[in-house]
Design a protein around this nucleic acid. Sequence first.
DNA 1: GGAGCGCTGTATCTTATGTTACGTATTTTG
DNA 2: CAAAATACGTAACATAAGATACAGCGCTCC
Lengths: 274, 274
Amino acid sequence: MISSIAELISDRIGAMPAGERRAAQTLIANYPLTGLKTVAEFSAAAGVSSPTILRFVARLGFQNYPEFQSALQDELAAQLQSPASRTLDPGSAGGAVSPMLEATLDNLRETFRHLTDKQLADIAARLAERRGKTFLIGGRFTDPLARYMAAHLAIIQPDVYHLAGQESIWRDRLIDMGKRDVLVIFDIRRYQESLVRFAEKAHHRGVQIILFTDQWLSPIARFARHVIAGRTAVPSAWDSSAALFVVAETLIGAVTRQLEAAGAKRIRDLESLR
Amino acid sequence: MISSIAELISDRIGAMPAGERRAAQTLIANYPLTGLKTVAEFSAAAGVSSPTILRFVARLGFQNYPEFQSALQDELAAQLQSPASRTLDPGSAGGAVSPMLEATLDNLRETFRHLTDKQLADIAARLAERRGKTFLIGGRFTDPLARYMAAHLAIIQPDVYHLAGQESIWRDRLIDMGKRDVLVIFDIRRYQESLVRFAEKAHHRGVQIILFTDQWLSPIARFARHVIAGRTAVPSAWDSSAALFVVAETLIGAVTRQLEAAGAKRIRDLESLR
DNA sequence: GGAGCGCTGTATCTTATGTTACGTATTTTG
DNA sequence: CAAAATACGTAACATAAGATACAGCGCTCC
């Protein structure tokens, strides 16, 4: 059963030629607004010609463009009158998608429920405090999170380093680390031996460790000054790092806000370097 | 302060002549839909003549009817993009953390609302289909997402490559790419020139492109076979990639499920290699 | 490698939409 | 109550929108 035009589109998008598919994608991307504009505007947004838009509309089964617009408007009217229908009702979700999404949403809520504002504020303050250097490292699947965070932090402050490559390489960086420095580690099951050893050594050198881990806590928690425990369970063969990712983004935002004055200047300087 | 056109109307409706007031009431009655229709339809709905509608619109301060409609559309766009304004649940309204979390949750819901099971299934099937090679690449902040996805896919199937390092390095890899191959690109604002060029060249070689982008669609959408548009707006100086991250995880899960038989064997083999 | 088909864009045309001018009705004011 | 001013609708106009015809191009399949 096809109830909305959006469904109709995603149902037929596979059987469309390239140009019309672009039209479809542009429309879906911010549905249904693009469809309410004129053909010319629609075509410009999609980067195709106006006839292609009309052919696209015709392929969906509409006689002409105005009829298509009316249908969109009717749909919108129905939506606006019953805002409840907007939120995904779990009942109708038959597909394989929503279990994953639902689980992730739950994970996020649960993760943040166990995190207080104060904890996050403390960690953000520690990261914003420019006394020493900041190092980031992650495990097999979580290293991208470390990279992501490093990419952002490196823009708003100096001395941010992502530890990458072979173990021997970053192990040697230990020599640069001291009491004033911060080490951010991402480590979820199955916890990596090499990371635990690295954390221990860093800890002995007085480095403050901020640990992102799962709810079962990596052994590194022993040495960590701050521990963030995210929920990772999802109906999949893999664990989900989404909760940790969002915590990371939240921290990036908080640190940016704290460094606003200094950070803004730095960002301007960086821009002018391009 | 007047933020919406509806407020503007109710502010001035007292000072309007009878006919225009009828127009105003009709518009408010099922706002903003009537305003998006043609002048003729609007006037019919209100039971007045078309010039009255135009005078009404002029009295609100708009130069002409299209300008008025654009304003309504912009307003609608803002509403549709941040359902937060409507879905305010009074329970959790707490600290400084939750704005970020709430926005992210909304982004996730919105992103998946525009994604159908079928689309994801198609993409997953394409990724699971072992005819050619799979390449992944991302932009400045999104490259970690490409890495994350590559790290998982590489475990369950062969010929998965993350394109990293300097532009010249991955540009040269083009020579290995052909019709049977898939290129997964992550690109959100501000869209990277180098990635667009790369995508274009890959496209001309017949490579099928799967694009992860934001709702404004990277120019790469022109060349992409599949486009995933995620919401990125959060109350922060940065855009959020969390929605794209979750979509990536969902796809990883789906591909894994499809390759279950072959994948499981491969995973066992890998384990035994350690 | 060549022939056929299908898709896409340019240019042209037609339609209908928004706009304006003007005459009539209605209300307001002296 | 009369006269002026304002409001409203009818009808003609100009403009911009959607629709169509056609030619070029790329792609696929022999």
